[in-house]
């Protein structure tokens, strides 16, 4: 089976000379939850931002290697980067609603893609909120400010905002970092249901969370990918000494 996303020998260096990623290769299969974990500053965010070319916004960085999505190079000349970002959508570490109503947050992506039909937009709003397990809490106040939601609700709104674009892949960069345990488990629950329809690449909040949600996992350290394995093997029998040290809490 063709990989959903294939990363081949990529190197990424920031303008200040920081080699954030070094010779990284791995595949992500359709409909799996792939977890990228590792200590802070190991390059996880940098990698996620490359996958939907949000990295384009960072000036003067140096990239080498190949990333394919459904078999085609995402940096290819004919690629429509805006469409790519709709297909591969990002949820950030801090909840980041756009100022405006809950509804306008959800319709923004589709509207920018040219969807005008109010019926379609309404449907997207409801559907995405339901998938993100937020519908029941906000259905009566869709036109009130998104800024007034709680932290956990905001983060689920951001998830719904990604889902409203009907993407194929969802990138989650530590989506529960600022959330309380209850909100965290609601989000984790939601992810479990989402895997049936989406491919998910996630940076977890902790090794425990990684073990809870992952189908497969990759361990990153200092800009390198140390090990990739099925979740069970990764968290019970890691092959690499450094992976084991990290998982058992000997550093990081």
């Amino acid at each position: 089976m063709e990989a959903k996303i294939s990363i081949q020998n990529i190197y990424y260096t920031y303008a200040d000379g920081n080699e954030a990623l070094r010779n990284i290769s791995f595949d992500v299969q359709a409909n799996e939850v792939f977890v990228l974990f590792g200590p802070a500053r190991s390059g996880k965010t940098t990698l996620l931002r490359l996958l939907n070319r949000l990295s384009d916004l960072t000036e003067d960085a140096d990239f080498r290697g190949v990333i394919t999505f459904n078999g085609s190079d995402i940096f290819g000349r004919a690629v429509d980067v805006y469409n790519l970002r709709r297909r591969i959508s990002m949820v950030f570490a801090i909840p980041t609603p756009l100022p405006g109503s809950i509804r306008s947050n959800l319709t923004y992506g589709p509207q920018m893609a040219g969807i005008r039909d109010k019926h379609v937009l309404d449907q997207r709003v409801q559907h995405s909120l339901q998938q993100a397990a937020l519908w029941d809490e906000v259905k009566d106040r869709l036109d009130s400010s998104a800024m007034a939601l709680s932290g956990g609700q905001k983060q689920r709104l951001c998830l719904a905002r990604s889902l409203a674009m009907e993407p194929e892949v969802i990138l989650l960069d530590n989506p529960t970092s600022g959330l309380d345990p209850l909100s965290t488990s609601v989000v984790e629950e939601t992810l479990r249901d989402l895997r049936e329809r989406y491919t998910i690449i996630m940076v977890p909040h902790s090794v425990q969370q990684a073990a809870r949600v992952a189908d497969r996992a990759g361990f990153m350290l200092d800009g390198e990918l140390i090990e990739v394995a099925q979740a069970e093997q990764m968290f019970l029998h890691p092959q690499n000494k450094r992976t084991e040290d990290y998982i058992t809490g000997r550093f990081g």
Binding site: L54, R85, R86, L98, P99, G109, S162, M165
Partner: peptide
């Protein structure tokens, strides 16, 4: 700055981002 990043992550072009966010 984050409004711009979020907007572009949702597939908006640079001008759409400026215009709407």
């Amino acid at each position: 700055q984050q409004f711009r990043t979020v907007s572009q992550s949702l597939g908006a072009t640079k001008w759409q981002t400026i215009r709407h966010q």
